[in-house]
Design a protein around this nucleic acid. Structure first.
Lengths: 181, 181
DNA sequence: AGGGCCATGTAAGTCGTTACATGATTGT
DNA sequence: ACAATCATGTAACGACTTACATGGCCCT
């Protein structure tokens, strides 16, 4: 259900095609949700059936035809009702990276550290991309939600980098201890 | 596939029933993965077929019978192979809380703040539970993975609380600004 | 010449959730 | 009396992923 409300949320700002929605998803929401374009297209069809959105077909000559979706009043009220519904704050995380981290004691220490250092590099790149994105979007037409979640994503990534340094030290400590024995 | 390796990882420490695995999952891995017992039982059956685990039926009198699963050599080597396989560091998050946060501008500011404050309370409780868990488990038989991921969970939650305070202030700022106009 | 962007979707499969079912024991 | 703990599972559904398919335009 949350994907449905994510799409409705994006459509409150402006009408968009499935393609637009799927690229926006990738750029803005990576830090808390992911969705493939195939899933988004099918969800939009269901949402149209349910009367939450309407679509207008735009025929194009050089580019493929497209369908522009707009939110309906029904869609707006469903969205606000969901926002107000008591949620349970049970994060349903699926973080494969952390899954691997939780098993790093099964690899030799140098491999474990190499893994963490590679993950650091990825996160550092993500932090830089986030800075670029924020300079382009904030202070000029970003919604409150975008401000809050991009700040959240940034803080979490910086926090991850700090934790990574701590974790690498921790592995080195236990490593030198056991090699003294 | 990750669930499979999570279960194999737990079984490297000691043989366990599906029930045990599912409770351990809830306690230790909430911060990066969730799984219902129904899914775990089915996965264990598939893993036994694939020769990654073996089970031994223990008949009990007062309590229900149980099946104790042990990891096989095949299971161990599959697990290490997965740990070494190049991963893509694409976190596949599904965080319904953040999803709601990203849409808070659709609620009146006081409701948005109330939402964040409730989520703070939940996270504060989670932080306290984490402290209790760590005092019971660390420094006495916790694996490196448990140390690393529980520290990770703790840091992320504390970071969340700080971000929450920032977010509440941010909403109050934009609120007073617009009411001056 | 090859890849990326635009734009849509189908089909098949896997993963994950919810509801239901059983049944004795221990604690409040 | 009622809920929780122990212990397992089936069935039905919904969410999500992966592979495949189309086709022209623009850039290097």
């Amino acid at each position: 259900m949350a994907l449905r409300f994510a799409l409705l949320g994006l459509l409150t700002e402006e009408a968009a095609t499935g393609y637009d929605l799927s690229t926006t998803f990738k750029k803005q929401m990576t830090h808390f949700w992911t969705a493939h374009h195939t899933q988004i297209y099918r969800e939009l069809l269901k949402m149209e059936e349910a009367g939450l959105v309407t679509s207008e077909l735009v025929v194009q000559e050089d580019l493929p035809d497209k369908k522009i979706y707009s939110i309906t009043d029904q869609g707006r009220s469903d969205l606000v009702a969901w926002l107000r519904a008591p949620s349970e704050f049970k994060p349903k995380m699926k973080d494969e990276n952390l899954m691997r981290v939780s098993l790093l004691h099964l690899l030799p220490p140098d491999e474990a550290i190499a893994y963490l250092e590679e993950s650091k590099r990825h996160h550092e790149m993500a932090v830089e991309m986030m800075h670029v994105w924020r300079q382009a979007h904030l202070e000029q037409g970003a919604t409150l939600g975008e401000k809050l979640t991009s700040e959240y994503g940034l803080r979490m990534m910086l926090n991850y980098l700090e934790w990574c340094d701590w974790a690498i030290e921790e592995i080195q400590k236990t490593n030198t201890k056991s090699s003294l024995r």
